[in-house]
Design a protein around this nucleic acid. Sequence first.
DNA 1: TCGACTTTATTTAGATGCTAAATTTATATC
DNA 2: GATATAAATTTAGCATCTAAATAAAGTCGA
Lengths: 392, 392
Amino acid sequence: MNSSDAPIAQQPGAHQLRRSNSRKILHAAWDQGPVTASELIEATGLTRATVLNQAKELVAAGWLREAADTRSAGEYSKGRPALRYELDDSSGLIAGLDAGQHRITLALADLTGAELLREEVRTDPEAGAEQRITAVIGLLQRTLGSLGVQRFAALVIAVPAPVDSAGRSPEHPEGFWQRMNPNWITALEPYAQLLAVDNDANLAAVAEMRAGASGSFAALMVGERLGAGIVVDGALLRGGQGFAGEMRALSYVSGVGNALGLGYLARKEAREALENGRVSTLRREGLDARQVFRVAAAGDLLAGEILESLGERLARIAAVTAGFLGLERIVLCGAMAEYLDPVLCIAHRELAKDPELAAVQLAASSLGADVALKGALANALDLVRRAAPFAK
Amino acid sequence: MNSSDAPIAQQPGAHQLRRSNSRKILHAAWDQGPVTASELIEATGLTRATVLNQAKELVAAGWLREAADTRSAGEYSKGRPALRYELDDSSGLIAGLDAGQHRITLALADLTGAELLREEVRTDPEAGAEQRITAVIGLLQRTLGSLGVQRFAALVIAVPAPVDSAGRSPEHPEGFWQRMNPNWITALEPYAQLLAVDNDANLAAVAEMRAGASGSFAALMVGERLGAGIVVDGALLRGGQGFAGEMRALSYVSGVGNALGLGYLARKEAREALENGRVSTLRREGLDARQVFRVAAAGDLLAGEILESLGERLARIAAVTAGFLGLERIVLCGAMAEYLDPVLCIAHRELAKDPELAAVQLAASSLGADVALKGALANALDLVRRAAPFAK
DNA sequence: TCGACTTTATTTAGATGCTAAATTTATATC
DNA sequence: GATATAAATTTAGCATCTAAATAAAGTCGA
């Protein structure tokens, strides 16, 4: 009997998860070339009416564009020619940034993931956070400016430090992690719609996933210091404060004892042996891992011994990491991956001694020295795909 | 100009994810007592019309029931009394089964998770798969029969073996894992609508999560053999063939060397010391871990040494597992957890020596000897909640 | 006991985003 | 130009929501 006016306010908001089909359609169109509506119907299980409707909206929103029709594309067909849509790759740029200790590399790609250009600047490894930030912002502004683009659709930054889910790195006694990750997220916020920071090994793992790895595996960076990106059941692990994949615990593993990288150890062992007067074809000038491998291949005894010790070490590291987590595969990443084969052979031999562990596959990555950067790009692309279609 | 009839068949199906709001409402009503529609509006953000509509349907479907109205429940209020709904807990039973080596325990609970009854049968640890299956089926049939229930809404089985995502266990040289998990999923399919098998340590981890644990931690079973349920970033790890949390790799950890449990080692070390003629108040008859702890508390030197060695061992195990994964916490589970304190103290002392590792919290579970069973129940409840509302 | 008041349920009228089916359009072939 | 084909477009209808108005069920004070 309430005859007063006052309408009862009911919750507004809503509209929640509607429009989920436009995402379906966009995703189905993403990685193929031009697609006809019929193919989209097939792929999404939606009705023709829906597909055409949504496709029209996606074109209006700048996510898709109409391509030449089926007939002109070659496939002969009777009947009315089908409309064809393709991803409007000009509608956004994605970026990956490898902010390493000595070098900062920026890679750009379009929305299909095709790389467009790459820029690189060197930095003083001792440089403070401020300097690094201005160097990166300069690089970004220059690149954006020269392309006449406001900002990137997504930017992912690879850093040599643990990174938690919020993009922060824990404190390090010497402040190294803070220097490597001076809160990039807030610093670079103006330059990308979607932004993420991650550990370089984690991004290497992402790159490996994109290249086909699946299930449970680790991407192990083997150069200067060991660090792993760990994927279990298809999901990248992060852990408290981003510590998953940190290799400090190797100090408890017998026959390993530290988390030093294979490259570092190759140099160190060679240098020490030479200082102790060992005979070898190794030269002290320009002594690096590559030289050790080369000389070993030519039959040098000392270098051979070094590789032997590295191989045994690697086998133990693989056995332990894989053992606790049920990893099926360990992929060795970094610049050394290209010439790591001899060490891999030794490690395989060692692993085969314990049949229970033979299940772990150990292999070198085929993605080259810039895996982390590739992973950053892959991750950036993924961010866009997951968020799309969003307003631009 | 095609005036023929032939209607173009367009995709049927559809209806996909609609009705998602009924799930929202059911979930909001699940763990509270009786709830008014207004409270559901608040909790779900939906309109009154929607909430009442869906609630009505959920009542019809047997998931909710109407409870006494607000007024009669005590809270005074003016105006028209609100309808109140509550979970119809009589509408389904969930079950957890701990299918251990020596003992099989069945626990039943209603849909709120309140435990109703527990049954236990002993089994010959050497019994074959067939025998174990018939024992379990007998137990289930008896229980279902006595309650006059067709089948459980969900049943989760805990087994002492690795279990992959399909519920299978890998082959074990002695066939142990197959005996413990003789493909329970297919064997027990008639007895529950939702069915899952998992490793007991994994389910212990689930129980800990239900009890409030979050982030990254491990539930470590410490009795006869070590085994862990590992949770990273809130997700339970499984790994290839379910091997995540297997502790075989401890054979590579210096000062540990094997995956034997603390209880087993306490007995073994005590027995060996006595055989070597060590003086102690320990008695050889009925020698078990508990006795070692008791005697140590009374000042026995030998027992004290044993606890000391267990503590140091535990510290290393914790450091290694936590180190690789960034675990924030390790919870010790199993029957021993209740009296494990002295060993924990020693382990804490050891961990504190390395400040980098002091971040790992080490604690005994407060969930008692039947953690795995509790986890199985929790998991079963979760299965139902995730699947609900489904046809019954 | 009656009515004012409060808080809720119920009803009614759109809006949205889809399906299903009929209809129209664009092209190739004969 | 008629015919066939395969597509786009239109139209109707349905399910599930929101928004707003209306009815109901109780309390409270006079």
